[in-house]
Design a protein around this nucleic acid. Structure first.
Length: 693
DNA sequence: AATAAAACCGAACGACGCGT
DNA sequence: ACGCGTCGTTCGGTTTTATT
């Protein structure tokens, strides 16, 4: 099937992590700068003519960091002809047709050297026999034959190459011609039509087993005619998680790598690949969980049925808590608080398609999504009380069924995820699919399951949620009705609103749900979930098309990968946070002391006597109200005309705004001085422009 | 001829680009 | 801002091909 070529995937271009990859490559390259020793090939190397001398001057290192890339490109562009010549030189080889250097050390065919390998490092020109011989264990190298005018790629099988199983690369003495099978094996450099000779020895096992032992994953179970190498499956697994590649584009790339001119002749193994990669990834997750190696005997019972990666830094009773932690004083409460964040996402949707109703996730209920059947039963149970309380604060998507509903072709409009808000690690069983908008019953279910394995009566829970002010109103009532175990913990719960989202809430609401004004919360901003969405959303294009089971498997794996990466980085992450916290603490103490020393004692005594408890003062005016009150008052005094007053008040307000903007620009300038990136510069210019207006 | 495996097909709809 | 057309990605089902 000939597919149309397509442009680059936008998500790949936008991927913020490309920068990191580039850095890693750079480090890798610099590590190889040592002079390479002479290749110890098994054939002597014919002399290669001297390359024209080229003098490399180290690029002029300008002091201005912005010029680095342009200078580097200029340095390379100056040598463009040299590089093009070297690349073109690869299209020909002066050793074509000479006596095969391999024949002198074994093969005596006496044939001219017309073949070479594109993948062997520094490979020689060889005759067909010697090339085949040198590739008995390298069946997927791309081979080229000199075809009078140019090098033409040919499959190794054309030279009679066969992959022999079970005898260290040699043919099984018991094998007959009926044991030779044609297979299509997909490897990271393309799709290969190969011949395989199975082993006939007693105990050699089925063809499927023999393939697996050779690190080929069969596409089917009975008589496989297609297989994928383990390295390919591993490669895609990483490509999909790190670069956001979808299977569709990946398989197409492999076909192009095989033959980018006549793709019609390349076997397409897309469907087979989809099936196998799903199962492969499931196997990898199982393997990583430690279950096949019996880790269950070493972990608490509540985690036996899980393949999810736990947050190593959050309090997990019976795993990472100090002995007798329950007895510690309440002012150490922050150490025993689980900071959770729950949030809805409306990009990770799922289309309505013809669907196999029996296809459930291979890790159903054992990873990040909740178990399907129980969730469906719960939803049927709560179907009657669908109409939820109208939102009394500002208008948000969450809790509002109508606003977030999607078209008729969407069966799942999005999902809700629980994560730990301090370390941004997703909670096991903390994700649920939505049906019609972000209803609190969905959030309740996710929350109850996200904490059921962890919490006990001594642990505190601080939950941040965009609509926390609404969510907490009937939380206790709902939990009592549906999750009695969790409802017992309600007096340990604090529901707040993430620091950025809270600015969209009504003035009267803000102080009561502010992380800044709540003790035992430190500098938690509660926005962790939003940043997870950014990572997961790049998979929305592919997961939207999948059926229920595949979608859950794919998302479970992305979430697991996200957790694993966070876990690997967490030592460095927490160390840097800790260092920063110490520095900032010193600054704050200094500031505090300065203010204290500059303030009269009687003020301080009076302030200390004040009650710090928050009270809702209904007669407090919002900014807009205040503005109109002042206007009214001034007009009342008759000292100004109506317009004059209005201008004066506006003038004062504007003055305050300008002063605020000036502070912002100053702070941004400091940021820019510290890290003069393009983005920062752009941001600064924009702010100055705003200020000028 | 029987059967397993591969090839083909149409549907779904949000994202995106283009023209008005 | 709006309508329109194409692209991207996966699915299940049907038809065709390859192998035994």
């Amino acid at each position: 099937m000939a597919r149309k070529r397509k442009g680059p995937h936008i998500d790949e271009i936008d991927s913020g992590r490309l920068g990191k990859i580039a850095v890693e490559n750079f480090e890798y390259n610099t590590a190889r700068k040592q002079p390479r020793t002479q290749a110890t090939s098994y054939v002597p190397q014919p002399a290669v003519p001297e390359l024209p001398p080229l003098e490399f001057q180290s690029g002029s290192q300008l002091k201005d960091k912005h010029m680095l890339l342009s200078q580097m490109m200029k340095d390379f562009t100056d040598k463009k002809e040299f590089f093009i010549n070297e690349i073109l030189r690869q299209e020909y080889d002066i050793r074509i047709g000479q006596a095969c250097p391999g024949c002198s050390s074994g093969c005596s065919s006496g044939n001219p050297a017309l073949y070479r390998c594109q993948e062997c490092c520094n490979g020689p020109m060889l005759c067909a026999e010697c090339l085949k011989e040198s590739h008995c264990l390298l069946p997927f190298h791309h081979i080229e034959k000199w075809n009078r005018d140019f090098f033409q790629r040919i499959p190794l099988s054309e030279l009679g190459h066969q992959i022999m199983l079970g005898h260290n690369g040699h043919v099984c003495p018991g094998a007959s011609t009926s044991d030779i099978k044609k297979l299509v094996i997909t490897y990271i450099n393309g799709v290969h039509k190969v011949q395989i000779i199975y082993c006939r020895c007693a105990g050699a096992g089925s063809h499927v087993k023999q393939l697996l032992q050779a690190r080929f994953f069969p596409a089917t179970l009975i008589e496989p005619r297609s297989a994928f190498t383990f390295s390919l499956l591993h490669h895609f697994h990483k490509m999909s998680n790190e670069a956001g590649s979808a299977a569709y584009g990946y398989v197409e790339t492999l076909q192009l790598l095989t033959n980018d001119v006549a793709m019609d002749g390349v076997p397409e193994r897309y469907q087979e690949f989809l099936n196998i990669i799903r199962f492969w990834i499931h196997l990898q997750v199982e393997k990583r969980s430690g279950k096949p190696l019996g880790i269950i005997s070493r972990i608490p019972k509540s985690h036996h049925n899980s393949v999810a990666v736990l947050c190593p830094a959050c309090p997990q009773p019976t795993i990472n808590m100090a002995p007798n932690w329950e007895e510690e004083a309440e002012d150490k409460r922050h150490k025993h608080t689980l900071f959770l964040n729950v949030d809805g996402n409306f990009r990770l949707s799922q289309k309505a398609k013809k669907d196999d109703p029996n296809d459930t996730s291979l890790a159903n209920g054992q990873a990040y999504f909740v178990e399907d059947t129980a969730y469906a039963e719960f939803l049927a149970e709560v179907a009657e009380d669908l109409i939820e309380d109208a939102c009394t604060c500002s208008g948000f998507k969450a809790g509002d069924i109508l606003r977030s509903a999607r078209g008729k072709g969407t069966v799942v409009p999005g999902l809700v995820c629980d994560s730990c808000s301090q370390h941004m690690i997703l909670r096991p069983k903390g994700s649920v699919d939505l049906q019609i908008g972000e209803r609190f019953c969905n959030v309740d279910y996710a929350l109850a399951h996200a904490i059921e394995d962890t919490v006990n009566e001594h642990l505190w829970i601080t939950l941040s949620y965009d609509v926390g002010c609404q969510y907490c109103i009937n939380l206790s009532k709902r939990m009592t009705a549906h999750f009695p175990e969790i409802s017992k913990l309600m007096d340990r719960f604090t529901v707040l609103v993430p620091k950025m989202h809270i600015k969209a809430h009504k003035d009267a609401c803000q102080p009561f749900y502010s992380l800044n004004l709540t003790s035992h919360t430190g500098q938690t901003d509660g926005e962790g979930g939003e940043r997870i969405w950014h990572e997961l959303n790049q998979f929305s294009n592919s997961t939207r098309e999948m059926n229920h089971g595949s979608r859950h498997d794919a998302l479970n794996d992305r979430m697991g990968d996200f957790n694993v990466r966070k876990m690997h980085e967490i030592t460095e992450f927490l160390t840097s946070k800790y260092k920063k916290a110490i520095e900032e603490r010193e600054e704050v103490i200094q500031e505090f002391n300065n203010i204290t020393s500059a303030t009269p004692d009687n003020y301080i005594t009076a302030w200390k006597g004040l009650d710090t408890k928050l009270v809702l003062q209904k007669d407090v005016l919002a900014q807009e109200q205040m503005r109109s009150e002042i206007k009214k008052e001034m007009i009342g005094k008759g000292s100004h005309s109506k317009t004059g007053t209005s201008n004066l008040v506006d003038f004062l307000m504007e003055g305050l705004e300008i002063s605020e903007l000036q502070c912002d620009v100053k702070a941004q300038q400091e940021d820019f001085d510290e890290s003069p990136t393009m983005t920062n510069e752009k941001h600064l210019t924009q702010m100055r422009e705003n200020l000028r207006r």
